[in-house]
Every structure is written in structure tokens, then in C-alpha cells.
Nucleic acid binder design. Sequence first.
DNA 1: CCAAATGATTATGT
DNA 2: ACATAATCATTTGG
Length: 330
Amino acid sequence: MEDQARMMLGHIGLTGLSHEDVGDPDNIRKHHNLGQPQQDIGEILQQIMVITDESLDEAQARKHALNCHRMKPALFSVLCEIKERTALSIRGAQEEDGPDPQIMRLDNMLLAEGVAGPERGGASAAAAVVAAAAGGSPAEANIEHSEYKEKLAQIRRMYHAELEKYQQACNEFTDHVMNLLREQSRTRPISPKEIERMVGIIHRKFSTIQMQLKQSTCEAVMILRSRFLDARRKRRNFSKQAAEILNTYFYSHLANPYPSEEAKEDLARKCSITVSQVANWFGNKRIRYKRNVAKLQEEANRYAVKTAVDAASVSSQASQANSPATPNSG
DNA sequence: CCAAATGATTATGT
DNA sequence: ACATAATCATTTGG
């Protein structure tokens, strides 16, 4: 225990001067070269452990003693001087980071999904958006909706609980560090700016943790959404009549199967589906019709070529010198 | 149960 | 903004 005080002071060069080292310009080198670093580290660790074992009162007393040491003002000014000289290299390394675009994206998404923000309003707004995006009838949209809402609320609760926890931990930690720094500022020079910077560093660390939370929450919401709200998962075929109407239009406008907005609205009304469903249908129909035609055409061409080649080989047996190949048209 | 059909979404190009 | 093409997820018919 005695060693500790000596060691602490020794670190700042007060006790170390009291013996044979005084006036020896090489003492630093001597100490560093002769002592095995491993052993030094072991010793220091040991001492740190002992310190942490001390009671608060003991520590306070020791600190007080240190503060009242007669050499303390001198030491302080020395430290200030050293700091002046070294501060230049430290300064200018920081200062960046406005609002992180990544975290803003996540925030926006969580807000849109109703996970962040006000309790009911956000959720119902998101539900409305989803219902509007999906083509299905409003009654059908509610079939599995309660389960979805429940799961979303669960995610929401978890998210807020975690966020709260992080916030609290961050505040506690910041307080702790600030107290520590304030305390230490009595024995070594620490400017308010440095404390501020420290707080900034802590906040950045915690905000990366928060970002991870937000990220995983976003993922959970996306999975939930795709599980419950992806319209592909509850697709219903259109009615026979609707298919009839759509096909009639398509084949009667085969030369230009691109219904105008107006025509789409008309068809949507007649088929009791939405305009975007009509658009989807025509998109699918066009590509699939084309594909079928192309496929059948290719098939036809294959057989046409085959028969042509057969015919050519038969005829070439009769006469070798022949006119060039017949190009086949599409 | 399987393959074809089908409605919706996504990626890409204009 | 819209069209196409590819792809996904489901329904349907054999």
C-alpha cells in the first residue's frame, strides 16, 4: 500500500528524484533499458488491481493528500507546459460528422414503418400506406393484419426498450466520465473543450451501437413485411369474367396493346380490380404473348430449316453444283 | 404431387 | 414515368 502512493507520485516524477537518480540525465534510459517490460507491466497491473480494491474513502483520502501535496502546484504547471508542447499534435485530428446519412436513412425507415415516432398514428399510417399499395380489397387486407400489427408492436416495444437502455447507459457513462475528468482536472490540466471532445467520442460510440439496433430492427420489420404484406403471398386469380374482358381488349388491340390511362380505368372498373392491376395484367400479357409467339415461331423455323436441309441434301445427291442456300424468312 | 398458369414485384433501360 | 424482362409466390388443373 505504501508503494502505491510512491508509485503514483513516481509516475509524475516526485519520489523518483529523491534517491541516487537525482541529477543523472541517463536515469530514464537506465530504468527503461534495465527493467524487463513484461515485469513492469505485471507490476503496474498488480497495482491497478490493488487500487480498484481500495475503498472509496481510502481513495478519496489519498486523492486529497495528493491535492494538498506541497509540490502539487509546481507539478501542475509542469504538466500544463508539457501539454502546451504536445497539444498541437493532438489537435486538428478530430472535427467531423454532421448527421450520419446512414442513420438518417434508418431513422426515416423506422419512422415510416411506425416503429419510431408516436404510438398509434405512425402504425396506422403505415398500415394505410401498405393497404393502398397492395391491390387487394380493403376487407381482405385485414385478414392477417391483426397478427402483423401485433408483431410490429412487439418489435416496436423491443426497439424502444433497447433504445431507452442504451440512452440510459450512455448518460450514466457520460456522467461517470465527466465526473472522473472533472475530478482529475484538479491534478492534471484538462480543458472543458477536452471534456467536450471526450463526451463527443462517447456519444459517437453509443450512436454506432444505436445504429446497429436500428439496423437489426429494420431488418426485422422488412422480414415481417415480406412475410405478411407481400401481395405475392396472397395472390388471387381474377374472375373468369375479368379475364374475359381483359383478353377481349388485348386481342382486339393486338397491334397496339397499350391501353391509355382512361382505358385502363375503364377496364379496372369493369373487372372490379385496380388500375395498377390492369397495368400488371397488360405487362404480363404482352411479354408472355410475345414470348409464346417467339417460341412457336422459333419452333416453326426449326422445323422449316430441318425440312429445307433434308430437301437440299436429297437434291444435292442428284447434282453437286448448286445454287447457294435459300435464306428462310421469319 | 407436379408443371403450367398467373398476378405481383424487382431490376434495368429509355 | 413507363415498358420490358426476369423472377417470385401462389393457384390451378391434370
